[in-house]
Write a protein that binds this DNA or RNA. Structure first.
Length: 494
RNA sequence: GGUCUUGUAGCCGAGUGGCUAGGCAAAGCUCUGCAAAAGCUUCUACACCGGUUCGAAUCCGGUCGAGACCUCCA
C-alpha cells in the first residue's frame, strides 16, 4: 500500500487514512489511572501507540499527541457502589491521594523512559479539567441528555438513543444491555440501569471532591476523555486509541458524551490494541498475575529466568500485530532477545561495509525492494511484524557482504547508504529500539584490545589452552569474541 | 446467555483466492586449531466436515476448541 491504511474499530474495516486537516493529525490515547504501578500489559498498549505516533511523524505529519493521566478518584463502578481507588490506595499506603497520584505518575514516566517512549505533546490530567467537565455536564443537561438526582448527574442513555445511536462501537443494542442488567435490580438513583455517572455526589468522607452546581462531588470516569480530547483536538479529530478493554463501556460512553454535547461524532478512526497474556493468561491488575515492567528489567520475579532489556520486550511486542492478542513466555523472550541482537548487529556492520559496484546488480535490486517494502508494510495498518521480516532479510545480505559471500563489486555504494537509512529509519526512529548496549566506552575497548592481543599471541604459539581460557571466561561474563574472516577480532555483549 | 475475536509447521508469529513471510529451535555443509559468529541447504504448515470456485489455509455454512468484552482494568 502506497498510502497509510488503518483498521477502524468503528467500521470494522481497513480505511485509507485521511487527516481532517493535513498535515496536522490529532491523536488521543487513553492513559493510565495512576493509583498503582503500570504493568506490562499497559506498557504494550503505550508502546504500540508510541510506534504509531512515531510512524505518523516519520510520514511527515505534524501530530498533536494527547494522552491523559487519570488522577481523579473514580469509583470502581458506575452503580454508586465500589470504592474510590485513589483514596483506598492512599489509605493503604498512608499517603495523601495526591501523593499517590504523584508517586505513580512519576513511576509511569520512568517506565516510559526506560521503554524509550516519546512523550505525548500534551499530557493533561483529569483534576486539571474539573471546570471543563462541569461545563460539558451542563451542556448535556441543557440538551436533555443528562439529569440530576441527589447531587449526582447521570447520562440519560435512552434519551440520547432517541436522537442518536448508542452502542455502535462495541456492537451492542440498548435492549440487550438493559436485559443484562435487569437481575441487578435498580438499587440506585438512575432512571435506567445503563445510565452512567457524569458527576457523583461526595460524602464528607471523600477526600477528593470539588464544588459544582450540584454540590460537592467528583466527575465520572468517562467524562475526562471527552472533555480533554475536545479541548485540545477539537470536536472532531483523527485518531482515538486505547486498549481493547476500554471499548466498552468507556469509549462507548465517551462517544455518547461527545455526540450529545457537540452534535458530531468525535473520532474518525478508532484504534484498539489487544491484550497481553503471560503463560496463556491475561495479565491484569484484577487477576493479580501482573508482572511489573521493572521486574522484567531486573529479572527479579519467580516466573522469570533472567533480566530482559526493555528493548527486548518492545521488540517482542513489535513482532506481532498490535491488534492481536500476544502471549508471552520465557521462550518468546529468549527468541526475541536473539532476534533483536541479530538486527542490531547487522545495523552496526553496515557502516563498515565496502561497496564498489558500478552497475545495478540483482543484489541492488533486492535491497531496494526490501527497503521499499518496509514502508508498504507499515502503511498496511502498521504491520510491524512484516516490516521486521524485511529487516531480517536485509540482515542476511549485510552479513553476506561482510563475509565476502557477496562481493563488494556486486553492490553499489548507494545501496549501502539505503541500507543504513532503512535500518535507522525503522529500527531506531519508528520502532524506537535502542542498541542493546553502547560499547563506545573507550577504556573498555582498550582493555579488550589487550586481551585480544594476548589471545592472538597465544594462538600463534599454538597455546590453545590460554587462548581458549580467554575466550571462554569472557563468554561466561557475557562478552563474546568473534574471529572475523579477515583475521581481525571483534566482540559483542550477550 | 448476548457481542466479538481466534484456531497456521517443534515453538512464536505474519499473510494474500493461484506466486512456499520471518524469527527461534533442529539437522547437514562452508569457515575455524577447536569453537562461536556468519553464510548456504533441509524441515512446505494452515482445527475438523461440507459448499462456492478452474483453483481456498484465504470466501460461505456447520462442528469442535481457545480467548476477550458484557463489572474496575491498557
Amino acid at each position: 500500500m502506497s498510502e497509510l491504511h488503518i483498521y477502524n474499530s468503528l467500521t470494522r474495516q481497513k480505511e485509507k487514512f485521511e487527516p481532517l486537516h493535513a498535515p496536522n493529525v490529532g491523536l488521543y490515547v487513553c492513559g493510565p489511572t495512576v493509583y498503582n504501578d503500570v504493568h506490562l500489559g499497559n506498557v504494550r498498549t503505550f508502546s504500540s501507540f508510541d510506534m504509531i505516533y512515531r510512524y505518523l511523524v516519520f510520514c511527515g505529519y505534524k501530530v498533536r499527541y494527547v494522552r491523559n493521566i487519570t488522577d481523579a478518584g473514580h469509583l470502581t463502578n458506575d452503580r454508586g457502589e465500589g470504592v474510590n481507588r485513589m483514596e483506598s490506595q492512599a489509605k493503604l499506603e498512608r499517603l495523601e491521594p495526591m501523593e499517590i497520584v504523584q508517586k505513580y505518575t512519576v513511576g509511569f514516566h520512568e517506565i516510559c523512559t526506560l521503554f524509550n517512549m516519546k512523550s505525548p505533546t500534551i499530557e493533561p490530567t483529569a483534576t486539571g479539567h474539573i471546570i471543563e467537565q462541569i461545563e460539558m455536564i451542563e451542556t448535556l443537561m441543557e440538551k436533555g441528555f443528562a439529569y440530576e438526582k441527589n447531587g449526582s448527574v447521570y447520562f440519560d442513555v435512552n434519551a440520547f438513543n432517541e436522537t442518536y445511536t448508542y452502542g455502535e462501537l462495541s456492537g451492542r443494542n440498548i435492549d440487550e444491555l438493559i436485559a443484562g442488567y435487569r437481575d441487578l435490580d435498580g438499587q440506585d438513583e438512575k432512571k435506567n440501569s445503563i445510565d452512567f455517572a457524569l458527576w457523583k455526589a461526595a460524602t464528607p468522607a471523600h477526600i477528593m471532591q470539588w464544588r459544582s452546581p450540584w454540590g460537592m462531588g467528583f466527575p465520572g470516569w468517562h467524562l475526562e476523555c471527552s472533555v480533554m480530547s475536545t479541548k485540545y483536538l477539537g470536536k472532531e479529530f483523527d485518531i482515538h486509541g486505547g486498549g481493547m478493554d476500554l471499548k466498552f463501556p468507556h469509549h462507548e460512553c465517551e462517544i455518547a458524551q461527545n455526540v450529545g454535547a457537540c452534535g458530531t461524532a468525535p473520532v474518525r478512526y478508532w484504534m484498539h490494541t489487544n491484550m497481553l497474556n503471560f503463560n496463556g493468561q491475561k495479565m491484569s491488575k484484577s487477576l493479580g498475575n501482573s508482572i511489573l515492567p521493572i521486574e522484567f528489567i531486573t529479572g527479579n520475579h519467580p516466573l522469570l529466568d533472567k533480566a530482559y532489556s526493555p528493548m527486548v520486550l518492545r521488540f517482542l511486542f513489535l513482532q506481532s500485530h498490535y491488534s492481536s492478542e500476544l502471549d508471552i513466555n520465557i521462550k518468546g523472550l529468549q527468541d526475541a532477545e536473539k532476534g533483536l541482537k541479530r538486527l542490531m548487529e547487522a545495523r552496526s556492520i553496515i557502516k563498515n561495509l565496502n561497496a564498489l559496484g558500478s552497475e545495478l546488480s540483482a543484489t541492488d535490486t533486492q535491497i531496494a525492494e526490501a527497503c521499499a517494502e518496509c514502508k508498504t508494510n507499515m502503511n498496511d495498518d502498521f504491520n510491524t511484524a512484516k516490516t521486521i521480516a524485511c529487516l531480517f532479510e536485509l540482515s542476511s545480505i549485510i552479513n553476506s557482504l561482510k563475509d565476502g559471500n557477496i562481493k563488494a563489486e556486486q553492490v553499489q555504494p548507494a545501496s549501502v547508504a539505503l541500507l543504513e537509512k532503512t535500518f535507522d529509519d525503522y529500527l531506531i526512529d519508528v520502532f524506537g529500539l535502542k542498541p542493546l548496549e553502547d560499547n563506545n566506552n573507550s577504556k573498555l575497548d582498550v582493555a579488550m584490545q589487550v586481551l585480544i592481543d594476548i589471545r592472538k599471541e597465544a594462538k600463534l604459539k599454538k597455546d590453545f589452552a590460554t587462548s581458549d581460557k580467554i575466550r571462554h571466561e569472557l563468554l561466561e561474563k557475557g562478552i563474546q569474541l568473534k574471529d572475523e574472516k579477515d583475521g581481525s577480532v571483534s566482540y559483542s555483549f550477550n
